[in-house]
Design a protein around this nucleic acid. Structure first.
Length: 114
DNA sequence: GAGGTGACGACCC
DNA sequence: TGGGTCGCCACCT
């Protein structure tokens, strides 16, 4: 929104993709990085998620996990845990890891290309 | 202005 | 097949 004017275009692209993640689905940092044209910038995507708490607190960052479906950023969440938010959307989480990850995985490139 | 850090990913041994 | 190491890109101190 208006507060996003100070964010770099790269971050806006990341937030845009994250905002497109449908409820009950998740994606990975690498998938987002690839979707924005920087497949090697997966770490930047993770950093953008941490930054999103300040610019886009409503951003569904909890739907973004690492390549293996592990809640890498769970420790960075405040208040409700990442797992609680995911389970509220019907996503099963066990030991900080998404159950049946490939079934709930959402590929942004597939949606954007389609 | 330079160095270190980080919610990752892929490659090498 | 599994574990360990290096690389990337942007922000913070």
């Amino acid at each position: 929104m208006d507060q996003q004017k100070d964010i770099s275009p790269l971050y806006l692209a990341i937030y845009d993709v994250v905002g497109l993640i449908p409820i009950g689905r998740v994606t990975s940092y690498g998938a987002i990085a690839k979707a924005i044209g920087s497949p090697r910038s997966a770490r930047v995507v993770g950093y953008a998620m941490n930054y999103s708490h300040k610019y886009c607190p409503e951003l569904p960052a909890h739907r973004v996990v690492n390549r293996v479906g592990l809640l890498s950023g769970k420790n960075h969440f405040q208040g409700d845990s990442m797992q609680t938010l995911l389970e509220a959307e019907g996503i099963k989480v066990l030991e900080n890891q998404i159950v049946d990850f490939e079934s709930v995985f959402w590929d942004p490139m597939t949606e954007l290309a389609d």
